[in-house]
Simulated assay, not measured.
Amino acid sequence: MATVEQAPDKKAGPSIIIQVAILAIMTAAAIGIGWLSGSYLNSTTKRDQPAAAASEPAAKGNEKAKAGEEGDKTKGPKVVDLAPITTNLAAPSDTWVRLDLSIRLDAPTEDATLADTIQQDLLAFIRTVKLHQIEGASGFQHLKADLAERAAIRSNGLVTAVYIRTLIFE
Rank of each mutant, 00 (worst) to 15 (best):
M1K: 08
A2W: 00
A2T: 10
E5Q: 12
E5H: 09
Q6G: 05
A7P: 03
K10A: 13
K10G: 12
G13F: 01
P14V: 11
S15H: 00
S15T: 06
I16Q: 08
I16D: 13
I16H: 05
I17M: 00
Q19S: 05
Q19R: 13
A21H: 02
I22L: 10
A24M: 03
T27P: 00
A28Y: 07
A28V: 12
A29D: 02
A29H: 01
I31Y: 06
I33W: 04
W35F: 01
S37C: 06
G38D: 14
S39G: 02
N42R: 00
T44Q: 13
K46G: 11
Q49P: 02
A51K: 11
A53W: 04
A54E: 12
E56T: 11
E56S: 08
P57M: 10
A58V: 11
N62R: 13
N62Q: 15
N62L: 14
E63L: 13
K64Y: 05
A65Y: 03
A65M: 05
G68T: 06
E69T: 00
T74N: 00
G76E: 07
V79P: 02
V80T: 07
V80E: 08
L89Y: 10
A90M: 09
R98T: 15
L99T: 11
I103V: 15
A107F: 10
L114H: 10
A115C: 08
I118N: 06
Q120N: 15
D121P: 00
L123S: 14
I126K: 05
R127W: 02
V129D: 04
V129F: 03
K130L: 02
L131C: 15
H132T: 15
H132N: 15
Q133K: 08
Q133I: 03
I134S: 14
G136V: 12
G136P: 04
A137Q: 14
S138P: 01
L143W: 09
L143E: 08
L143A: 13
A145G: 09
L147S: 07
L147G: 07
L147D: 06
A148D: 05
E149R: 14
R150A: 03
A151Q: 13
N156W: 04
N156P: 05
G157M: 12
G157Y: 12
G157D: 12
V159A: 12
T160H: 12
A161N: 14
I164H: 06
I164D: 03
I164G: 04
R165V: 11
R165W: 01
L167P: 00
F169C: 06
